[in-house]
Amino acid sequence: MAQGFKSTPRGYTARFTPEEVQVLTQLFEDVALTLEPDEEAATDPLADLVGISENAQIPTDPALARMLPVASNDPEMADEFRRFTELSLRRGKIANLNMAAMDARSGDLALDAEHAHAWATALNDVRLTLATRLELKTEKDAARISQMTEWKDVETTDQYMALLYNFITWLQDSLMEAMLSQLDD
């Protein structure tokens, strides 16, 4: 059974069983893979170098659309914003997810501020992805999903995803409380 995050003199510590390590690394890597930019989209090497997408469109995958959201209700402005920011947004998220996946492997964590930040955003992107797959759209959906906490009750893929979602939620909340405790009031 996992030990959630705590703020200690060694940093933000947490401990996971080998099964939990496997689940965490898998989730981080899966979401990182989802965020990989389209190979075909980046054809101009200079545009690619400075992080401009030539043809950035609202992603059709709802999980991606949530992680790379529309930034303005003016479609022209939203398009331009996406062209200039989406590639670096994808790369930033992938870097954080990969860092968290590497950290997770040890099973016994003591994170500094930089790694804790990566974990906070990586866990959030995992939750956003699982939530879209679970079609979690309202507070009512959230309440229903939050009841799935027992391994022995799992019979379907959705129930398994709900269980993972609740595990990641609990883990992220423990990290955020620990990080909040380190801020000055």
Binding site: N124, A131, E139, M176
Partner: peptide
């Protein structure tokens, strides 16, 4: 608003990124 982002997370972002007090 969305039903996913945790209150603790959103508070942390507002405090650490914008530097707003608690």
């Amino acid at each position: 608003n969305d039903p996913v982002n945790l209150m603790s997370y959103v508070s942390y972002v507002f405090r650490s990124y914008f530097g707003y007090d608690r």
